[in-house]
Amino acid sequence: MNTSASTRRSSSRTLHKGQQTRAAILEAALGLASHMGLEGLSIGALAEVTGMSKSGVFAHFGSREELQISVIREYHTKFEEEVFFPAIREKRGLPRVTALFENWVKRVSVEIDSGCIYISGAVEFDDRPGPVRDALASMVKAWQSALAKAILQAIDTGDLQPDTDPEQLLFELHGLILALHHDARFLRNPGAVERARRAFARTIRDYAEPAPTAPVVRAFTRPTP
């Protein structure tokens, strides 16, 4: 019997099982954070939810802070899978910008009963410097950079006016999502999603159409008799 090969297979199975356990813990942690916020996460609460010991959970993350950061990264991965990657298959220009926004709206729609970690995390950590805030800000900036790049491409393709300020348009689209989240989750307004879509269409139309030119006013000249 090849003892070395057997040991390698055993180590591989142990590693694979460890990865599966960590993934299961992360999934449970993401669910907790979505409902209770990142500050609601603790090794003890997660151990209770997963049916594991505190030491078992601790072994996979080492600290509450590392657990929070891991949840932020996991949320970002799922956000990319649902919002970003499907959209980049669309044609560059307005089709891609529209797909990014529409996927974002759909993501918010399914988070009405849970919550967006980007938004709730910003409230929790906006004035609390540290690794958790840095990780959260980094993920949000990465998403904003991707959307800004799509806007720049829409300018290059001629879908948007050449004098379009990409940072301003990004700001306005982000504002629509924040308003949607507020009205859909907090106020439970059933028309919030459609309002966000109409606002997006109007905003894009403003940037896509040439600015109206002022009518030429000619001085009236009395005809010479």
Rank of each mutant, 00 (worst) to 15 (best):
M1V: 11
M1Q: 07
T3H: 14
T3V: 14
T3C: 04
S4Y: 08
A5L: 13
A5G: 03
R8I: 15
R9M: 12
L15Q: 14
K17E: 12
Q19I: 07
Q20P: 01
A23V: 10
A23E: 13
E27S: 13
L30I: 01
A33F: 00
V49W: 03
M52L: 15
S53W: 07
K54Y: 02
V57T: 01
F58H: 14
F58Y: 14
S63N: 02
R64Y: 01
I69Q: 02
E74L: 12
K78M: 08
V83Y: 01
F85E: 08
P86K: 07
L94N: 04
R96M: 15
V97P: 11
T98A: 12
F101N: 11
I112Q: 13
S114A: 03
S114Y: 04
G115V: 10
G115T: 04
I117F: 09
Y118G: 04
V123S: 03
G130R: 10
P131T: 07
P131A: 07
L136T: 04
A137H: 06
M139I: 03
I151R: 04
A154W: 05
I155W: 05
G158W: 03
G158C: 05
G158S: 06
P162E: 10
D163H: 13
P166N: 07
F171Q: 13
L173E: 06
L176Q: 09
A179V: 06
L180M: 13
D183W: 03
D183T: 09
F186Y: 14
N189R: 10
P190I: 03
V193R: 11
R195E: 12
A196K: 05
A196S: 13
A199T: 06
F200D: 09
E209Y: 03
A219L: 05
R222Y: 06
